[in-house]
């Protein structure tokens, strides 16, 4: 393993220079790169990448990375925000993950995106450990932007329960995932259960899934791993969105991954003054809870669940 400082975040005189490290394994080939936390609350993403670094140090020492495979892991590029408990860039609240491919002469977060992208460009495969714009619990899954030049089948090689394909919307076109694909890296976003807290089990699942991908593509040899799951591919447009009509306290009745029957109560919206149930959120059809909104109180007309039908 070689640790290199990819660039430094400089906001002197009142903040000290912050190095952004890349951990390089194997050869000089650009085989696969993993991006961890970009936002300041992506603790789970940073931790997952850190666990991967730990595993790859061990595997490299055991000679289990094949000769012509080169790997890069960047655990974190969001330190400047993370250390002051902010999700986005603290000065102007901009999101580095809405600034790709970046611009080296542009504004602060455009420059940071550019530096990250310079480090990540040119790899055959790219994995971004990321978080959604809505706080919630997911079933761990791989997400691929349906840009027309992606290879969906490779998303099955992680052995996570689901592979979700998504048609990009205009605001997706400035994310790392989208631009990585445009620059011809086969790109996957990996979502674990958590963002702003550490979920050990799903962090381990995510780490294993990346090692499984590397093994199935022949980049690691003789690495015993849990078998993984038979991945089900689902287009995001086929997920069933369940929204609420009333605002109030949100009380979940069924956790993520649960199977629900048509008509079954999944959550209640409760009056914040009397605890009366204002609305029962019922499953419109049989399915598996793929996404559950994480909120104590909730406004009306908002996604509460996404269901995989069947």
């Amino acid at each position: 393993m070689k640790r290199k400082t990819l660039f430094t975040i400089d906001a002197q005189p009142y903040r000290q220079p912050i190095p952004v490290y890349g951990y390089f394994f194997g050869s000089e080939e650009k085989t696969l790169a993993v991006m961890g936390a970009i936002r300041g609350d992506e603790f789970q993403q940073m931790y997952t990448a850190a666990k991967l670094v730990q595993e790859l140090i061990r595997l490299e020492a055991e000679g289990k990375i094949i000769d012509d495979c080169g790997l890069l892991v960047i655990p974190c590029a969001g330190q400047f925000s993370m250390n002051v408990s902010r999700r986005f860039w603290p000065l102007d609240n901009t999101d580095i993950n809405r600034m790709f491919p970046g611009y080296d002469k542009g504004e602060t977060t455009q420059r940071l995106a550019w530096r990250i992208f310079e480090a990540l460009k040119g790899y055959t495969y790219g994995i971004h450990l990321t978080s959604l714009y809505l706080p919630g619990d997911f079933i761990p899954h791989i997400r691929i932007m349906d840009t027309g030049w992606q290879e969906n089948a490779e998303g099955l090689d992680f052995g996570l329960p689901y592979l979700i394909t998504r048609k990009p919307r205009p605001y997706d076109t400035t994310t790392l995932n989208y631009n990585w694909q445009v620059w011809e890296t086969r790109t996957f976003s990996l979502y674990t259960k958590a963002t702003d807290f550490i979920d050990e089990k799903s962090a381990q699942e995510a780490t294993d899934s990346i090692l499984r991908f590397l093994t199935r593509h022949g980049f690691l040899k003789d690495v015993p791993l849990p078998e993984g799951e038979a991945t089900q591919a689902v287009s995001e447009k086929n997920l069933v969105t369940i929204r609420n009509i009333c605002g109030g306290i949100l009380l979940h009745c069924r956790p993520t991954s649960s199977q629900v029957q048509a008509g079954e109560i999944m959550a209640n919206i409760v009056d914040p003054y009397t605890a009366t149930v204002l609305e029962e959120i019922r499953a419109p059809q049989k399915g598996t809870i793929f996404f559950a909104r994480h909120a104590q109180i909730i406004s009306a007309q908002t996604i509460v669940f996404r269901l995989i039908p069947g």
Partner: peptide, 8 residues
């Protein structure tokens, strides 16, 4: 257009 916020 309008929508209910969580609390009153």
């Amino acid at each position: 257009v309008s929508a209910h916020l969580p609390v009153g």
